[in-house]
Amino acid sequence: MISRAHSRARRFAALGAIAATAALVLSGCSGGLAGDGGGASSDGPIKLGMLAPFSGSEAAFGDYMKYGAQLAIDEINADGGVDGRDLELVTEDDGCDATAAVAAANKLVSAGVHGSVGGYCSGATLPTLPVFKEAGISMVIPAANSTALVGQGAFLINGTGIQQGAAAVAYAEKLGAQTVVLIDDNTDYSVDLANSFEEQAGELNLAKRESVNPDEKDFAANINSVLSANPDFIYWTGYYQAGGLLIDQLRAAGYDGVVLVGDGSVDAQLAAIAGPAIDNVFGTFTRTPDMLEGGDAWVAAYKELAGADPGPYSMQTYEAVKAIAAAIDDADSTDAEKVDAALLGLKAFPLLSGDLTFAKDGSREGGGFVIVSPTGDNGAFILSDDLA
């Protein structure tokens, strides 16, 4: 008889089911999972809700995340589901807006989801925490990583802002930066990341902090303020739409130093917006499939499903599904209390990005941030420095 631990590792390992994706098992067998919370049914499919931006300036990430989650679901269903029950993805658009996110979260609760595997913008994710908690729904967040999310009962696949800030500081130190300027876009995520960098800056000469309005197109006043500090290293912690314009305008104003961007700007669209100004730009990000052993097979499976290349957070959302499915299987229940306990019990759980263990506060141990650069095809970010 195969042990549950062995079965779990076989069933949910990141690459174990890729070959089976083309032969999906879509039968809707009722299963034996007990203790469903939130009024959700204890038979039929296990519904996983996903909030992501499908509209607004960050809309590209919605499809990246959706197809990443669906690939994991297809693999798990092809391998028999969870205790004989298929997984089903239910998506809602949060537009990276706090008010819209709360309304969308309530829609997912009404739809009877058993778990949540969404969350891109931290500012939109934060207000949904009490909605899901009150409904008895476990949350595994693939992208949003504000430190404000830590210790709130959710589990983070992405490294935290503190871990990302530490990687940015390490890179500035490694380059021997003499004068550093921080620029945020006034969003929760961006300010949190800038704060994390500042708190860990140590001996670095942090000469100035600047905040921009991301809805503006002309950052001349901000740029004049920034350049008055004569920096050789700028860390932009906002999103790519404003980031691309800001970088272009910084270069036009004569700045030729390093620009490091946070993970909210790590997207090929940054290069599309910035144009030739993208030279000497780098980013803090967790590893992407092209950087990993076995990543090519995963990318091929994703492209077959989505008809396009994966983007930032495709893999993290895939892994969020793998983690919560394993926890539901281990708990033999979709009850949030039992699933959360099982998530904490995942020790060195095998994923494409590396073994996963959650700390008691729900953060991912290690973080895994590296330095990437937009030097791949069409401005895609690829590994530049592993900070080893």
Rank of each mutant, 00 (worst) to 15 (best):
Leu227Thr: 12
Ser196Met: 07
Gly307Asn: 08
Ala60Trp: 02
Asp36Thr: 13
Ala359Ser: 09
Ala168His: 05
Gly62Glu: 02
Gly367Met: 08
Tyr302Met: 04
Val261Met: 01
Leu346Trp: 03
Val117Thr: 04
Ser363Met: 06
Gly84Gln: 06
Asp185Ile: 01
Glu199Leu: 12
Ile328Phe: 05
Thr91Ile: 12
Gly376Asn: 06
Ala34Pro: 01
Thr187Arg: 06
Leu346His: 03
Ala308Tyr: 05
Gly37Pro: 03
Asn205Pro: 02
Ser55Met: 05
Gly112Thr: 11
Ala124Glu: 00
Asn230Glu: 10
Asn230Arg: 13
Leu245Ala: 14
Thr317Asp: 08
Gly176Arg: 10
Ala34Asp: 11
Phe233Glu: 03
Leu51Ala: 06
Gln152Val: 10
Ala327Pro: 05
Leu126Lys: 08
Arg364Pro: 11
Glu293Ser: 13
Arg4Asn: 14
Leu149Glu: 07
Asp256Phe: 07
Phe349Arg: 01
Gln249Asn: 07
Gly345Cys: 04
Gly243Ala: 11
Ala40Pro: 04
Ala274Thr: 12
Ile371Ser: 00
Asp355Ala: 15
Pro53Thr: 03
Leu344Glu: 05
Ser30Trp: 09
Leu346Thr: 08
Phe54Asn: 07
Pro45Ser: 15
Asp185Ser: 03
Gly244Lys: 01
Tyr302Arg: 04
Ala5Cys: 09
Leu175Val: 08
Val113Trp: 02
Gly62Ile: 01
Glu304Phe: 06
Gly368Gln: 01
Leu108Cys: 05
Gln316His: 12
Asp332Arg: 15
Ala9Glu: 12
Val258Ala: 13
Ile183Leu: 11
Gly379Asp: 07
Ser384Tyr: 11
Thr357Glu: 01
Ala242Pro: 00
Gly49Lys: 13
Ser211Glu: 10
Tyr313Asp: 06
Asn378Gln: 14
Phe233Tyr: 15
Gly123Cys: 09
Thr375Ala: 14
Leu48Ala: 06
Leu15Thr: 15
Lys338Gly: 03
